[in-house]
């Protein structure tokens, strides 16, 4: 519908920009006690040549199946502690090559054993410029977002348990660019986070023909979360038309689990 005029990026103000910033640390893992107060310091560093404005929010934090953080609004969900967190400032301006400290305080809840998770999110933008005319309104704004992830646990109160939901192989044909892959999905059915590692044994006619490491970054799975574990097998062409049994074995602090699947290489 070409009648529709969408003028998004008007030649007005501030269409070239640079941002260079970092927050330290970017991930905080900690233990705490019920009813206790825990304090943390974060340093926001503006590494660029222009000043920056930052707005801070406390938000819920989960991981998707690939282990990428997913930040959502504060909620009352189990294991989400954003609602128990306070910060000493909600916004600030920081000049070029300067840094700012932010103080974060957690009042650990009572009666909620296990893990607790939240993110302190820094939303950055260039400070607003004074406009010469009020008529100039249509601008494109660009900002940055950088969360600091807090992964905590009430000491010795969490239950660690993981189960394998399913295992599958990718579809043929298999090439150098698209090799044979096995993928398993694990779910954390405990009450605290776990780091899982795994491998898969391949058998043909009850004889072990290979052992592959299952890749999943750090293997971190939050409670009720799921994560992919993937292995690539470069030698699948040697077993064309053969039936293969794969046994995936996983281990984590306090436990183990495994899953067997069978498949035929086309």
């Amino acid at each position: 519908m070409r009648m529709l005029l969408l003028i998004l990026l008007l030649p007005m103000t501030a269409y070239a920009g640079m941002m260079s910033f970092s927050v330290s640390p970017s991930i905080i893992k900690y233990e705490t006690v019920q009813g206790g107060i825990k304090a943390f310091d974060l340093t926001f560093i503006n590494q660029g040549d222009n000043s920056l404005k930052a707005d801070i929010q406390i938000m819920d934090f989960n991981l998707d199946k690939k282990g990428v953080p997913v930040i959502t609004n504060k909620s009352n969900n189990t294991g989400q502690w954003a609602r128990f967190v306070a910060i000493d400032k909600n916004n600030f301006k920081v000049g070029a090559k300067q840094s700012k400290k932010i103080h974060v305080t957690l009042k650990t809840p009572r009666g909620k054993p296990g893990g607790g998770y939240f993110a302190v999110v820094f939303n950055t933008s260039a400070p607003k410029l004074k406009r010469k005319s009020k008529g100039i309104q249509n601008v494109m704004t660009i900002g940055g977002q950088l969360p600091v992830l807090f992964i905590g646990e009430i000491s010795r109160s969490g239950k660690r348990k993981v189960k394998v939901l399913k295992g599958a192989v990718n579809k043929a044909p298999y090439t150098k660019e698209k090799p044979f892959k096995l993928r398993f999905v694990l779910k954390n059915i405990g009450t605290t986070h776990v780091n899982v590692t795994g491998d898969v044994l391949l058998r043909h006619n009850k004889k072990v023909i290979g052992r592959l490491m299952l890749e999943s970054g750090s293997g971190l799975i939050l409670p009720q979360g799921e994560r992919y574990f993937v292995a690539t097998w470069a030698k699948s062409d040697r077993y064309a038309n053969k039936k293969i049994q794969a046994e995936a074995r996983f281990s984590y602090v306090g436990g183990r689990t495994s899953k067997k699947i069978s498949f035929k290489i086309p």
């Binding site: 519908m1 009648m3 005029l5 990026l9 953080p69 309104q137 704004t141 900002g143 940055g144 950088l146």
Partner: peptide, 27 residues
């Protein structure tokens, strides 16, 4: 580059766009 899939419900006019670069550290 940006493409809009137009439909009759969209009103003509000037619109403000907001983009954000979201940076995450994999835990």
């Amino acid at each position: 580059l940006f493409v809009i899939k137009t439909n009759p419900t969209q009103k003509p006019g000037q619109y403000l766009a907001n983009f954000k670069f979201v940076s995450n550290t994999l835990p």
